[in-house]
């Protein structure tokens, strides 16, 4: 059982929680994740570690309310307990030796991209962050990114925040203007990462993506999180979540991600009914 020490609503569908988790905070590195269950009999879901405080013994998670479990989690408050909280899982993002990096985040993916940008910044690298959202009210972590970036480009689909357009437009413009990067690190929706990789491949820039497929155990025991990378089957929870973006089979990953769409809706509707029952 882990206690929620702080809760912050970042936008209508995204929340931040600071959780008491001493052992995990002692080891966590950017790029790693935890798995949690909200309550007894709950589903296990992976969430990336958005920040950690080794001294304070806390881990920060940021999540979007998308299904039954994140919905239940969003109803918990400061002082409440999360039933199970395990980690840090997966391999940390490899940042050593990088001098100049473009960090490209999309939507809640920015919550995962932020600790990576922060670590790069702290290690003295030049960081250009490109963050994209659908519209103004969905923007998260803008100030945080600004504090750790040498350049920050904010993009939105509808032009209500920053420039109108896609993160790929912004990345392309930077590269065309003569910026050179040791590596591009991109985290966001699969479709966005796919197109970032397509672009960087044209320019021959090494690109790392962070994959977040469906998971259960997160220890390599079920294979539910498998992906094809360079023609080989990899388990995202133990071999990743970071992979060479130019080798990932995104189309397969997108298809697999939709495996439970029909079933999840069922679980979601079920949870909503429960909430209604409680409200009565």
């Amino acid at each position: 059982m882990n206690k929620i020490l702080k809760k912050k609503i970042l936008n209508p569908t995204v929340q931040l929680m600071v959780v008491d988790a001493k052992a995990i905070a002692a080891k966590a590195e950017p790029g790693q994740f935890i798995i949690l269950r909200v309550d007894e009999d709950g589903e296990r879901i992976p969430l990336t570690i958005a920040d950690y405080d080794r001294e304070g013994g806390t881990v920060t998670i940021i999540f979007q309310i998308v299904g039954a479990t994140t919905e239940k989690l969003s109803k918990l408050n400061e002082g409440d307990l999360i039933h199970d909280f395990v980690g840090p899982l997966g391999k940390p993002t490899e940042t050593s030796g990088l001098k100049k990096v473009a960090v490209v985040g999309g939507g809640v993916g920015c919550a995962i991209a932020y600790p990576v940008a922060k670590k790069l910044h702290e290690s003295g690298a030049t960081v250009h962050s490109i963050v994209g959202f659908r519209s103004k009210e969905l923007v998260i972590l803008e100030d945080e990114f600004r504090n750790v970036s040498d350049k920050l480009v904010l993009m939105s689909d509808d032009g209500t925040a920053g420039a109108k357009g896609l993160v790929t437009d912004a990345l392309k413009a930077l590269i065309e203007s003569g910026e050179t990067y040791d590596e591009v690190i991109t985290i966001g929706p699969l479709i966005m990462m796919k197109f970032v990789c397509k672009l960087t491949k044209e320019y021959g820039i090494k690109t790392t993506v962070s994959m977040n497929p469906i998971m259960i155990d997160g220890t390599g025991m079920c294979g539910g999180c498998r992906l094809t990378v360079g023609g080989e089957t990899k388990f995202a929870c133990v071999d990743g979540p970071d992979f060479d973006g130019h080798l990932v089979d995104f189309d397969e990953a997108m298809a697999r991600g939709a495996m439970y769409k029909p079933y999840e809706r069922e679980a979601h509707a079920h949870a909503c009914n429960l909430l209604k029952k409680e409200a009565k």
Binding site: I216, T219, C222, G224, T233
Partner: peptide, 21 residues
């Protein structure tokens, strides 16, 4: 606990599970 797969075409289609999963 590490499941093996057969490495045949189509193993990553939706509806293919390891018994463990």
């Amino acid at each position: 606990g590490l499941p093996r797969f057969m490495n045949i075409p189509g193993e990553n289609l939706k509806g293919v599970y390891s018994a463990n999963e």
